[in-house]
Nucleic acid binder design. Structure first.
Lengths: 229, 229
DNA sequence: CGCGTACTTGATATATGTCAAGGCATGTGG
DNA sequence: CCACATGCCTTGACATATATCAAGTACGCG
């Protein structure tokens, strides 16, 4: 069954779900605003895009590929705070510095726009201002949902992750994951072993199928949704 | 729209830690702006302030007492998303509806300002716009820190909670908690038993003292900070 | 084809949850 | 003023989900 955006949309959510506004991959402007032309930056797999506490001079949009943002705890644990998929805008901070690090999950292309330019344009252009607002609203909602995720059981977290990815990738039933089990584990606050076992278990219950380790077929979305908690 | 005032704020200068800007308890204006006069609402212990999905017509500021915002998962689990202490502004949503419920933890007083009025004023008043910006930035930071908390061990979560409370209550070393163990547990994603045992354990290690169940003396803050993860 | 990385699976450990009982305040009515 | 009820917290014994440690296996890439 096809996953519609509506399924997980929060009531009262802001218009303009950001991730639906895919950029034309050949265009180098953000939000369809000619004044927001930016540089296109190709990134290799695992390349660092920015580090925590570095000056946040640019705002980024994923044109292709995918990105993880994360924090490292002082004992070395890594918390992946978000996966950024094509269309997503990220790196827009309130302060002058990034509050997390960002790396490319796979080879891809990013659009870079100077933060100062974006903010200046937003002042005069209601459409851009609106989009900017939507980016921040989405960010807050995302963060709150992530907190909610982390109090759930392993099965609930993994099920929620799969549904989230299916929706954001606009996949019908087969999703191609660009990230490793370690990335997923660090996003869900679990270990790779638990993620792996949970997927195996979901496959055993016929909720999903695993034709390849990074290709996942959602066989029974409503069962997954029930598992979501 | 709000975005105008918001972007009018100097980029890179968030400043204004909201919770530090305690309102004068006798004044019924928000952000020290005369146009933002509002109603003062007394609330009883455990009184509902608003419910999830209800229209977000008002923005609230705690004058005295404290408030918990929370979500209920479909199976009945409760996730406390935040404690709101004197000075904190909450209930300002991006969409038209509240994304969580709010209840008074103890008897207290709230300042209510119509959301539409606040947003309208913010358009023309840079100072108010700046404050609003700061409220949202604080909210996002808070949510991200909460996610970070939830991947840690019980000891780390409890230690972090105590330090957070000490700081936000501007307490020197003795903090008076207004919330029950159940509230704390639901905030930290633990059970009351685990919270209780962890406090006992911290007392055993002389990191804290427990003269009463809701009075906690921080005996060794640097040890607590180390435990924080 | 072979190597290295990533993934899965198994055995065991452990942190936290669950269930159950008891203690300790606080307030209320006799 | 005492007896008792009530809510909140602590403590104990035990259960269990997830982490950890340790092999194996498959896959992708040279």
């Amino acid at each position: 069954m096809l996953i519609h955006a509506a399924t997980a949309a929060q009531p009262g959510s802001v218009a303009l779900p950001v991730s639906r506004n895919l950029p034309a991959p050949h265009l180098n402007v953000m939000f369809g605003c000619p004044a927001l032309a930016g540089a296109v930056m190709p990134v290799e797999r695992n390349a660092e895009i920015f580090g925590e506490d570095e000056p946040a001079d640019y705002v980024y949009q994923v044109l292709s590929g995918s990105v993880r943002t994360y924090k490292i705890l002082h004992d070395g644990r890594r918390q992946v705070t978000a996966f950024r998929l094509p269309g997503d805008v990220f790196g827009l901070e309130f302060g002058g510095a990034h509050d997390c690090s960002a790396e490319a999950v796979v080879k891809g292309r990013l659009l870079l726009v100077r933060r100062s330019v974006l903010l200046a344009i937003a002042k005069g252009d209601a459409e851009v201002g609106h989009r900017l607002w939507a980016v921040i609203a989405a960010e807050l909602r995302r963060s709150q949902n992530h907190s909610l995720l982390l109090i759930k059981s392993a099965q609930e977290r993994v099920a929620a992750f799969l549904l989230e990815m299916a929706e954001r990738l606009r996949a019908d039933s087969t999703i191609e994951l660009s990230m490793s089990r370690q990335d997923i584990a660090d996003y869900l606050g679990l270990t790779i072993e638990t993620v792996s076992r949970t997927l195996t278990q979901l496959a055993g219950e016929a909720a999903i199928a695993l034709p390849a380790s990074r290709r996942i077929v959602l066989r029974n979305c409503s069962a997954l949704r029930r598992l979501t908690g």
